[in-house]
Amino acid sequence: MSKYPTMFDPSSLVRKGFCPIRSGTPTAEAHSLYYEQHGKGEKHILMINGMGTPSFGWDYQVRSLAPTYSMLVFDNRGCGYSGYPVGRYTTSGMAEDVIALLDHIGWTSHRQIHVVAPSLGGMVAQELALRIPSRIASLILCVTTPGGMPWHNLPPWAGFRFLTTLLVTKDPAPTVMKMLYPSTWLEAKAPNDPHGRSNRQVRTESYLRLIGTSPKQRIIGHISQLAAALTHYVSPDRLRQISETVPKVVILCGDQDSLIDLRHSRELKAGMPAAEFIQWGETGHGIHSQRPAEFHDLLIRVFHEADTI
């Protein structure tokens, strides 16, 4: 496994490896998921990535939470070190991948897992919660959607333009910055940066380090994950089922999201009236990396509240 270096602190690494996924459908091949566990705490945190993002995108949260919790991060199918199975990708199929991974590492106990999932990861997490609700203590759905017909799932025009640009550009960093963060925030001075750089400079440096450590996503992975997002749908009845079977559900969104329209977060709330709804101002799609400290504090609060229900 030495050829797969961790970008996190090696001292927090408990185990890493590949989980074999045996497909249950004739249209998809068997593949494997790359995963890492950091920390040995009693509370178990599962982080599910968004589209095109490998596990290393959780850098801040793993560094800040691993001393206290057990953190599980992994690369979704079609991204990072994980496999690229042939066949249609769906959020339900990707949720089955996650269940196989949880079974593989032994995270199978009642109310053992706190699930944190943005964007495409939030869509996968909805399907996951429908399948193994008794294992989940809390569910934090960030900048995501319950879905619908493919045209209903299309991003706003700016987001569509960003996604198509990523398929052909040789320098993705400028596009990724515009796609994930508000322009005013990008130009502002980064807090606590000793060199006085802007948020754009700091986040670009972090992004370049990320993509320099993990394999570049193949075009087929980009298209296949996008297809899973476009065909995702969890009906109001199924949303209600999640709300009734998972003790603590939080819906988190930003007001300047170029990829997921705000109305989709409100649709989630309408289907899960008991869920806590949070909207942060001047915040884009990259919500956990734009506001990492606040995101960290939110996670701590939700984990504690879920464990006291």
Rank of each mutant, 00 (worst) to 15 (best):
G87E: 01
L239H: 06
H296F: 14
G271I: 02
Q201D: 13
I132H: 03
E127I: 01
A95S: 15
S11K: 15
P215T: 02
S265G: 09
I211G: 01
N153Y: 04
E244W: 03
F295L: 09
R238S: 09
T68N: 11
Y84A: 04
H285E: 02
R197L: 09
Q225R: 04
T90K: 10
G50Q: 01
P133R: 11
G39Y: 10
G87T: 05
H304Q: 14
Q279R: 10
L163Y: 06
P146C: 10
S224T: 05
G87L: 07
L102G: 08
E29N: 07
W58D: 12
P54Y: 03
Y4N: 04
D75C: 11
V124W: 08
W151D: 14
A158K: 12
G93S: 05
P85E: 04
Y84C: 02
L252Q: 06
G83K: 08
F160D: 03
I105P: 05
E244V: 01
I132Y: 03
L65K: 00
R203T: 02
Q225K: 01
P273A: 04
G78F: 08
L259F: 08
L33Y: 01
L72A: 00
H114W: 12
A125Q: 01
H31Q: 06
V98N: 04
S32N: 07
G254L: 11
R301H: 11
R200F: 11
D97Y: 10
L141P: 09
V202W: 13
R131W: 06
A190Y: 14
Y233D: 04
I105T: 05
D75G: 12
G106L: 05
A66S: 14
L141Q: 03
V62D: 08
F303K: 11
F295Y: 12
Q241Y: 13
